[in-house]
Design a binder for these strands. Structure first.
Lengths: 350, 350
DNA sequence: TGAGTCGGCTAAACCGGTTTAGAGACAAGC
DNA sequence: GCTTGTCTCTAAACCGGTTTAGCCGACTCA
């Protein structure tokens, strides 16, 4: 039995050269004659040699891995289709380049800082992807302090130049959604928003408010949630209970929108006849429920792909700037329809 | 500016001892006097030293990381709430022990082998968690060949002793589901199964068939799917189109069950009046849709927790055997009801 | 012809830990 | 008094790569 994997010294011996030259040849650097190069590569191939990341990391101070820290309650991640798609996009970049993804799900924001510190102290990763950016996000200065490179999904409000951002504009799609509802005759359009601390949730809300304002409607009702289906249900119940019940609700994610449809139906309302529903994410399930969900489609996979690619370029020393992806798009399906006439608006019991 | 992080040599110098002794003290091994020990720990604390995993890995041949390779189409992962919950359970074990999770999403089973080989060749991880076990799974021998330790979710059919398994029995819950439907008067109960290659899907199907048989019903119809909501919708349409339409359908996951409810409604059927629906997973969304989904709850988070804990024990050299978790449980909600009488069974158009 | 340049290569240091061989001090046993 | 054993500790090798300093021979140029 050959005890352990071949090392670079074995390759050197087989090719009759020094370790150093093997290293040069394998990282194709100048200063190696063509004959030696082919001989070395042949020897490496023959021995089935592949470099040990550990040794490489130690001597070259590179981890060949990137980190992703998700600070969300597991339930929210499970409800949300964003991360799985996003991660699969990330992998499509990493795998071919021999990089690994180190994933941390911390559930609690208080553990978040410790996680980043550990990643940096142990030098597990060369850089991280920042998601779920918050207002005045403390991670921006934290990362600077611990010297960890990063890119962010969306632009931070702290120091926009500190961290390159990969952005995806959802404002046009939200405007389209509101216009779509207004054109259907809706005047009382409510919003079930995500946590206000989260920049993307706040931005969606702002876009929504602006869209409503520019349609000359009265200031709409907005209910904040934590993004879970459970909280989406609670928010919906609250909205439908109001004296001036909205005839359309725009949600910050599909999970809440789907829960919202459920709540409306339990309240004896028909969707979309009595209330129109708009989601956000374009999750697969939304396409198959009845009524099929009108929603805003964002390319989570593409976002992951570009984010990973950008981070790798940053880590390798390139100068990278912000990158803007194609904006989100409204997908109209069956959960939105003409606004009910006033006489239809009163609650009916099933 | 202090250029780089302190190393063990800095700690040694500060404490006035040798590197070796510092190493001993920090891994609390015998042979260090109490005074030296406290002096060393104080020095390390003072300097803010933390060990470099890279160096540690290189010299001790341990990666302090475990791998998870998910070979599923990204769409299926996004539809399925299992992995996010599972991973959050895994993290709850890893983080406190200074271990990292290296995640690979490969999408294509052909890339899977290469991914495991890379993980092993680069020695990125000390062990892996095997999920989505397949019939005659080639990974069992692959892992042996490349010398990667592993535990599996569910027991392999290849060489049960090769890889310790963490199992969760869903048979009782599936039997309960069928009994529940039978007690409601259903006699034509169909199953929308997952891919037959997947052991857990096949096992669920087998449990279902056995449960139906033991209720003295005729052999039921089973439609195989790829686990996506889209395929669940297709399967449902196929079932509802049959001359002898089933009055109840048991699905292999919640995403398909929810899609199935959508399809039934589009076909003008009411759930649960015309057809009863049972899911599998107990996803959050299922609780809030209307009708709330009757489903089988498995503790994905706990599964992740136990799997990670078992793998770490295995990796650290412990002798570990199979572990059986608490079985899945049926959760009865509103998507199941008394079977329709024969006159009610014919299709009505909306 | 001699100095300078360049390409190809080797030896050795280095990254930051762990681990082994063995030194020195001291107590116990004969 | 001498051997033996135990405890604490140091020096140095080692893990498997990368990188630097410098050697050697051939070639160029004045």
């Amino acid at each position: 039995m050959q005890a352990s994997r071949p090392t670079i010294a074995d390759v050197a011996r087989a090719a009759g050269v020094s370790k150093g030259l093997v290293s040069f040849a394998l990282n194709d650097r100048p200063g190696v004659s063509p004959e030696s190069r082919t001989r070395i590569l042949a020897a490496a191939e023959e021995l089935g040699w592949s470099p040990s990341v550990r040794a490489r990391s130690l001597s070259s101070d590179v981890s060949f891995a990137v980190g992703l820290v998700i600070a969300r309650d597991p339930e929210i991640i499970a409800d949300d289709s964003f991360f799985p798609s996003f991660i699969s996009g990330v992998e499509r970049v990493l795998a071919p380049r021999g990089q690994s993804l180190v994933l941390s799900v911390v559930g609690d924001e208080r553990l978040e800082e410790a996680t980043y510190r550990r990643l940096a102290a142990e030098r597990r990763v060369d850089g991280v992807i920042l998601t779920d950016l918050r207002a005045a996000d403390s991670r921006v200065s934290l990362l600077r302090e611990i010297g960890l490179r990063a890119i962010s999904l969306g632009r931070t409000d702290v120091d926009a130049s500190a961290i390159p951002a990969v952005t995806l504009d959802d404002a046009p799609a939200i405007h389209d959604a509101v216009r779509h509802l207004v054109s259907l005759g809706h005047t009382r359009i409510a919003h079930v928003a995500g946590p206000d601390r989260l920049l993307h949730a706040a931005r969606r809300k702002a876009s929504f408010l602006q869209a409503v304002a520019s349609s000359n409607l009265a200031a709409p009702v907005v209910v904040e949630t934590d993004f879970t289906a459970a909280d989406g249900a609670r928010a919906t119940a609250e909205l439908l209970d109001r004296a001036e019940r909205p005839t359309a609700i725009v949600y910050a994610n599909d999970a809440m929108a789907i829960a919202g449809i459920g709540v409306a139906r339990r309240a004896g309302l028909d969707v979309p006849r009595d209330v129109s529903i708009v989601g956000f994410d374009d999750s697969a399930i939304g396409r198959y429920i009845e009524p099929a969900l009108t929603t805003v489609a964002t390319d989570a996979r593409g976002w992951g792909f570009t984010a990973a690619d950008t981070l790798l370029r940053l880590v390798s020393g390139d100068e990278v700037g912000d990158i803007e992806l194609a904006p989100a798009e409204l997908v109209v399906r069956d959960s939105t329809a003409t606004a009910p006439t006033e006489t239809n608006t009163d609650r009916r019991q099933r």
